[in-house]
């Protein structure tokens, strides 16, 4: 199975690990990520006003590219996923945005939300299957791992339709599949400080400390995330309980025995 792949800006720079482990593991699991040519940055944040069109166009281009190729579009970064998925929903369901975006784009055939957007974790769950993944694991991790979801993957749940926004299970199921022991802690779906960490470092610090304390208190030995921004913020924690944080793809590679090769 070949998927269109949208890596996003950070996976090409600060989060190269997230990207290359994703691609290598895909091969081992029998699917391929075909990077969209000339993709443009999603903007990192879903446009904040309903009247903004231009800032949605890079997402629409990527979505249309996948549509032309007849492929589903796979993302790894939480922010890219959030922005592209929500833009796709707009193109499908909001007539005004669809019309105006298509007027800008001048595509051969107007784009109307036809592409299916999948997060890499959804590919693992729904296309590969966690049970199949489990069979391919050569090095079960055996560690206590806390899933850190953050906000972008889960909310608004009606549109991103990723998992139960208040009690998600997909990353926990993933952890089980790679032989780890998932640790449930209540702040796994609370914001890491996200976008404000550039200007409000102290405030973001408090938020990640709370996450670390909660996860460590519940017995986690490490955290995994799908988001480079979460990674950055979590690593800024100055809590005495600070845990190491990994991208989920890195642990996937480790469990599949690919980590050293990559």
């Amino acid at each position: 199975m070949v998927y269109s792949y949208y890596p996003g800006c950070t996976l090409k720079t600060k989060a190269k690990d997230l990207d290359r482990y994703a691609k290598e593991c895909a091969k081992a699991l029998g699917f391929e990520l075909e990077e969209i040519e000339n993709w443009q940055c999603c903007g990192g944040v879903y446009p904040l006003g309903t009247d903004e069109i231009a800032s949605k166009l890079s997402s629409v281009r990527a979505l249309n590219e996948a549509k032309v190729k007849g492929q589903d579009l796979v993302t790894v970064c939480s922010a890219c996923h959030h922005v592209i998925k929500r833009t796709n929903d707009d193109m499908k369901n909001v007539e005004d945005i669809r019309t105006r975006a298509n007027n800008y784009m001048e595509l051969e055939e107007p784009y109307a939300g036809e592409t299916t957007v999948l997060h890499y974790l959804e590919v693992l769950r729904d296309r590969v299957g966690f049970d199949v993944l489990k069979e391919k694991v050569v090095k079960p991790l055996g560690r206590k791992i806390g899933a850190y979801y953050g906000c972008l993957l889960l909310r608004p749940s009606k549109i991103v339709q990723f998992d139960n926004p208040e009690n998600p299970t997909i990353i926990e199921d993933f952890i089980k599949a790679i032989g780890g022991e998932p640790v449930i802690y209540p702040y796994r779906n609370e914001c890491c400080g996200g976008y404000v960490s550039l200007k409000e470092k102290e405030m973001a610090g408090k938020m990640v400390d709370r996450i670390m304390d909660s996860a460590a208190g519940m017995g986690a030995e490490e955290l995994i995330t799908a988001c480079p921004l979460c990674m950055y913020n979590l690593n800024k924690s100055e809590s005495a309980n600070k845990l190491p944080v990994y991208y989920f793809t890195e642990l996937l590679a480790e469990a599949l025995g690919l980590k050293e090769e990559v």
Partner: peptide, 12 residues
């Protein structure tokens, strides 16, 4: 807004 189970078994 939220009920958070705590490591000591209480609920925040």
């Amino acid at each position: 807004g939220k009920v958070a189970p705590q490591p000591d078994g209480s609920l925040l």
